[in-house]
Amino acid sequence: MLLQQLLNGIVVGGVYALFAVGFNLVFGVQRLLNLAHGAVFMTGAFVAYYTVVNGGPLILGFLLAILASGALSMLIEIVCFRRLRKSGDAEFGAIISSMGASLVIMTIWQWISKTQVLRFPFDTMPVVIYRFWGLRVSLLQLVMMGCAILIVLVMGYFIYRTPFGRRVRAVTDNERASMLMGINPNRIYNLTYFISGALAGAAGVLVGLAFNNINFTMGEPYLLYGFVIIILGGLGSIPGALLASLIFGMLQTLTIAYLPSGLTTAFIFSVLFVILLVMPNGLMGREGAGSLGRRR
């Protein structure tokens, strides 16, 4: 039973990782919180849903969701953040403008979905259960885990082993110096926001499939979880977001399984509180990583 819960926790944590790694990636690069990240996540689920109900295969829906969410995230940066960043005082402005973007996107999907809770047609994802060592794993869970592992590995390779990733890290470290080296930071921003959005979109499709519940507010709790995870993992740290996602996913499934339901959230936030008391920068964060002033 415990082992089963841990397994479920890893699956849930993997989906959180898709959401939070992208959230933290753009925070690391621009020191800005994209509060529309939950709306981007939701967009992924909607795009996949409408592809499937219009006769497309799920895999096509998944791909379109990734592309649409990536493009939307890129657009959010251009519209909401780029000009603000030029003003030099974007920290709070970005919170407001991305909150606005989030509301706009939510309203659009609310209007399109006519405020209905949407469900994928039965059998969109075949219900197959595998059993081994007394554990039950569904095909969907395997796909979720597989996607999370694959995407995180590809991301890690991309960021730490390719010239493009090197440029992303350089812009993260020092935007001004990177411009002097011939890097156009706007291109880096376009791509990091695209990746961030694509990851969130993938998470949205997986969550939509797992709970078979797609609605225009589905991004909100994930935005809150995303916050908790990036603070727990360390602001701007990709490995930190990964680790914190797994911990958070496991904590959540374990508390749901073993504690009275009213205590789940209280327990999770108490653990977060204690960890932050001991490690104020999060599990893998650097001191001062959250401040904009670091760069000057």
């Binding site: 010239p163 090197r166 890290r169 470290d173 020092n174 110096a177 890097i183």
Partner: peptide
């Protein structure tokens, strides 16, 4: 203004961007 989180080789490789 070197890139503190990149190693020395990566800093140098980054300089090639200007080429």
């Amino acid at each position: 203004q070197v890139f503190p989180q990149l190693n020395v080789l990566e800093n140098l490789q980054l300089g090639e961007t200007a080429l």
